[in-house]
């Protein structure tokens, strides 16, 4: 006997993500899910943002890593609330992990929450967490072809942050190709060029981010 099911395999995750979103909304916490491959500059982006906005906004960070608390320690030095999630081999964060982390975050005292996902351009794209915006950091040394190789991830992006532009003179990175691919797969995504370690272009990112928060 055949039984029709027609059920989304990740439906349970999506239901939990909706609950997370309700919790975040009820506390007025604007949440950004930051995704990229390992080493593209997610932590540097978050650190730069904290440094620039610390006086204006109360920021919190949830760090997702396979193991270690190196990123949480770096962010913690900035004096903001931070929680480390270790996935113990898992390649992405899911809504359940976020729910547990949120329970330990002082949400009433946070305006802007960053979720630094596990460095990976594949799996995190499939798992919504309850965030308001998704940003993908794509650094110049990775090459301009990344959107072609990971279309699903770039299709999810509300903004693509082209990081490490200070290295452009030394690399064979075709900016035009990169823009063309992103415009094709996600025409509405904002492309922001920056270098998180030097601070170049960070203002553009902050302008975009604060504009999204006001919406």
């Amino acid at each position: 006997m055949e039984i029709k099911v027609l059920r989304n395999i990740l439906g349970a995750n999506e239901q939990l993500a909706n609950k997370n979103r309700e919790l975040l909304d009820s506390n007025g916490v604007f949440t950004v899910n930051v995704m990229s491959s390992p080493g593209a500059g997610k932590t540097s982006l978050i650190l730069q943002t904290i440094k620039r906005l610390k006086g204006e906004l109360r920021i919190g960070v949830i760090e997702g890593d396979v193991s270690s608390s190196l990123d949480a320690e770096a962010v913690g030095k900035e004096g903001v609330p931070v929680i480390q999630i270790n996935t113990d081999g898992g390649c992405h964060l899911d809504a359940n992990m976020l729910q547990n982390a949120l329970a330990n975050m002082p949400l009433a005292d946070i305006d802007l929450l960053f979720i630094e996902n596990v460095g990976n351009l594949i799996c995190p794209a499939d798992f919504v967490l309850g965030e308001h915006k998704k940003v993908v950091v794509a650094s110049v040394p990775e090459g301009h072809d990344k959107p072609y190789k990971y279309p699903r991830m770039f299709n999810e992006a509300d903004a693509v942050l082209m990081n490490k532009i200070d290295l452009l003179p030394y690399l064979d990175f075709n900016r035009e190709e990169f823009y063309r691919a992103i415009k094709a797969i996600k025409g509405s995504a904002e492309i922001i060029e920056l270098a998180c370690t030097t601070g170049q272009g960070v203002e553009d990112w902050l302008d975009w981010l604060t504009a999204q928060m006001k919406k």
Binding site: M1, E2, I3, K4, V5, L6, R7, N8, I9, L10, D126, P151, R152, N155, I185
Partner: peptide, 15 residues
């Protein structure tokens, strides 16, 4: 994108 993101259980066959 019009297809390629599907991820669902369509049906099960049982005894």
């Amino acid at each position: 994108i019009i297809s390629g993101k599907e991820l669902f259980v369509e049906s099960i066959e049982v005894e």
